[in-house]
Write a protein that binds this DNA or RNA. Structure first.
Lengths: 297, 297
DNA sequence: TTGGCTTCATAGTTTCAGGTTATGAATAAC
DNA sequence: GTTATTCATAACCTGAAACTATGAAGCCAA
């Protein structure tokens, strides 16, 4: 029968402070009898007398005195909950777990971190880089709050918001710089270096060539765009990379970069999260920030 | 409108633990709708979503997660109140402020402290030594819990309990040891040394002599029994002291101690406290202990 | 001592928070 | 498509807690 009520503790505190039922009641905006009854019930709940009532004075008993200290702490902590909530409401959360696919992470992460930290300087940002399927699973399990992936995901459990579109560009050995730019058809017949299976970027590139995703290929897969570009520089073949990777990847190898004519291959990068995630509002804010970062405006 | 309820916090904790409304409700012995409603109201109170409800999972939001820690602490502190009360109920309080009159304090205090400490080893004992009027005032103001005084006090605001009775004995110069012991009448005509005004022991001695309390006296007052005995040893006169003072006071001066015949003068030492003091039960226990100490049994 | 004043407690009544059961809506699983 | 699971909502009911009115006890002044 531990029916302690916060209300009772509040009244107790008021009475301890005033030493007068009437005044304490007024402070709590209730009538004096209500105060009397609640104090009595508090005493019954605890099985201890908290106040000594004499004709003109209401005094704390020694135990009441001890209790007052603890009650003050408790009520303080409770009120802090409210303050904390108010301070937190609508704000970007202090901890954000975000996933990014490998063909985006290296190029966007630095700017993303900067932008998100500006949004909330106290931000504790956890980033996880892995392929889309891993990210989706993590989202479902609740170990990620959101993920940056290529759209569309088309999964009913997720909300998706586009961040930016970007073309793919052709990377050839430097010597080929002046040759005509092939279209998808022509590309399929060249030695096209691609990421290993599981990367969505691989599938998108194959789609552009109108080739089946499971087309047999003879050991021309790399595990990162960096590797692919280096292989191109070594004259092994050609490859595609997304626009955002140009700056970081093409400086250190003898390769040339060419844009495709229409229709150019491209991908849409987006932010996704569980549709039921109550942080939806804040995630839209975050998406907006990430979008402007990824579009460099 | 900070209507937070302990009940809501308890339900919140249960739900955070189980991640399932039905199970959490069962744990709290309520129906599932009741749980739903209370959680919703908690969220409304705080203005923040605490749980993410998806079809098969109920998950804490990041803020809910943070809240859970604080709530655990708060509920722990609240439950401690109950335990503390139960542990304290009926026990001698941890802090005891007790007053003692000067003609008792030196002789009884050491034994009192020992006995009370045995009653509650954690006892924080405050002793105040002053004359009866000062003690009564302190009791009224609530700065003392109880006082050891000579009975009766006969004040309706106080409860009094007798601890012991003790005779007064006559202290004369050692040379007078074989003279007959005077009665009250005879005593009045001798050079009787007494405590200064305000001491109840002075009044009791004068009463034995059938002398008015305000009888004019020519500079024969001392401020302590020790002083009086030393004066007697110097041959200045005779005095009365209570039995309990014999051991401590008569060793260091050339005086003789004699008991009176019937009716012997005597006093009753008692413990008093505010009638309204809720510690009455414990104070009776304390009185019992002090009584057996003062009677040396 | 008496009558008035202050102050806390008690009683009777009303209101509302919080409980229950019944049912709906959404989604996962078959 | 059908079924099962799970949370939300609705309608209703009960009891906690509020209020007003009144009583009881003690202080104070006449």
């Amino acid at each position: 029968m531990n029916n302690l009520t916060l209300r009772q503790l509040r009244y107790f505190q008021a009475l301890a402070q005033h030493g007068h039922f009437g005044h304490a009641a007024a402070m709590c905006s209730i009538s004096q009898p209500a105060m009397s009854v609640q104090i009595r019930e508090l005493e019954e709940n605890l099985g201890v007398t908290l106040f000594e009532r004499s004709a003109r004075k209401v005094r704390l008993t020694p135990f009441g005195d001890e209790l007052a200290v603890r009650v003050r702490d408790i009520l303080g902590a409770v009120d802090e909950l409210g303050e904390l909530a108010r301070a937190t409401a609508g704000k970007v959360p202090d901890r954000l777990r975000i996933g990014v696919i490998p063909t985006v992470a290296p190029y966007l992460l630095p700017a993303m971190v900067t932008a998100l930290t500006r949004l909330n300087p106290a931000l504790d940002l956890h980033v996880r880089e892995t392929q889309t399927t891993g990210l989706l699973r993590a989202l479902e399990q609740g170990t990620l709050d959101a993920a940056v992936v290529a759209l569309p995901v088309s999964h009913p459990a997720f909300t998706e918001v586009a961040l930016c579109e970007e073309d793919f560009v052709l990377v050839r050995p430097a010597a080929d710089a002046d040759k005509p730019v092939p279209d998808g058809e022509a590309l399929r017949r060249m030695r096209l270096l691609l990421l290993e299976e599981g990367h969505c970027f691989r599938d998108q590139a194959l789609a552009f060539c109108a080739a089946p995703a499971n087309m047999p290929r003879d050991g021309l897969d790399g595990s990162s765009l960096t590797t692919l570009v280096q292989m191109v520089g070594a004259g092994i073949g050609v490859t595609l990379i997304p626009e955002m990777a140009i700056g970081l990847e093409t400086g250190s190898a003898p390769v040339s970069v060419s844009r495709f004519g229409h229709p150019a291959p491209k991908r849409t990068i987006g932010l996704i999260w569980r549709r039921t995630n109550p942080l939806a509002t804040q995630l839209h804010t975050i998406a907006e920030v990430l979008g402007s970062v990824s579009r460099r405006d």
